[in-house]
């Protein structure tokens, strides 16, 4: 039995993608944990910022929303949405965005709008917020997903945010000059995208999770030939997560 939770494994797995100097766009929930953990563990020179306009807050407590008062303290600058979006897509900056979604397809396109018919949906979700925008502008997007067949689908009910669109060069052909889906971090594994086809493949399965289980819970065929076991979080990773990042256990 692992001595860490799914959320801890996910936060650490996603945090490993962040490099020093990256500008990290954080959303709510797990993405806040991952961004904060990344900065404290792997990339102290990364800068966390929020679409609401808070840039590089000290994050002494975990924010519960991207507008939380906690994203306004210790910042280098408190601004607004226009400034925030001028950072996400800025040609001088390498920006990594953390997002979540209700559905994802094999090209990393995301649905955060509806399940069912758009006008009379079975389930309505919050909508795009800034997700469509950062998916268009960021250098790379990492998406958190609960790994269920109904969430990994061949056809999204609604395409809110563009990943690799229809694969291959189709994203560039749309007129989006950079970016695309970098990885998908789930409660079972980490998926990445093929350099040429832009199709999702299994990159790392977590300790104790079988490849079969991942395949069974994915609603489209995935390549598992490149899969290897993921490194579990270290004792120090877990200490930082639990004692420094989220001591109040609001998300963990």
């Amino acid at each position: 039995m692992a001595d860490y939770t799914d959320n801890e494994m996910m936060a650490i797995s996603a945090g490993r993608f962040v490099k020093d100097g990256d500008i990290v766009f954080a959303g709510t929930g797990l993405s806040m944990l991952a961004a904060t953990a990344a900065k404290r563990i792997y990339a102290p020179k990364a800068v966390i910022f929020f679409e609401t306009g808070g840039i590089d807050p000290s994050l002494e407590e975990i924010p519960m929303a991207v507008s939380d008062l906690r994203v306004m303290y210790g910042t280098c600058l408190n601004s607004g949405l226009i400034e925030a979006f001028s950072i996400v897509g800025h040609r001088r900056l390498h920006t990594i965005a953390f997002l979540g979604a209700a559905q994802i397809d094999q090209y990393g396109n995301l649905n955060t709008t509806v399940i069912g018919d758009y006008w009379r949906p079975k389930t309505r979700f919050s909508g795009s917020g800034g997700a469509c925008d950062v998916s268009a502008f960021a250098s790379g997007v990492i998406t958190f997903m609960q790994h269920e067949k109904r969430r990994f689908v061949e056809k999204l009910d609604y395409l809110t945010s563009v990943g690799w669109y229809k694969g291959g060069e189709s994203r560039r052909n749309l007129g989006l000059q950079r970016g695309g889906a970098l990885a998908v971090v789930t409660n079972l594994c980490v998926m990445r995208f093929d350099d040429t086809t832009k199709e999702m493949y299994l990159a790392e399965y977590y300790p104790g999770i079988t490849v079969d289980r991942i395949v069974e819970n994915t609603g489209f065929p995935i390549d598992v030939s490149r899969a290897r076991e993921a490194e579990p979080p270290s004792a120090e990773d877990l200490r930082i997560l639990r004692e420094e990042v989220d001591p109040q256990r609001l998300i963990l």
Binding site: Y118, C132, A136, L159, T160, V162, G175, L176
Partner: peptide, 9 residues
Amino acid sequence: TKSGLGSDL
């Protein structure tokens, strides 16, 4: 903007 290209928005 370029945001929205390819999206169901």
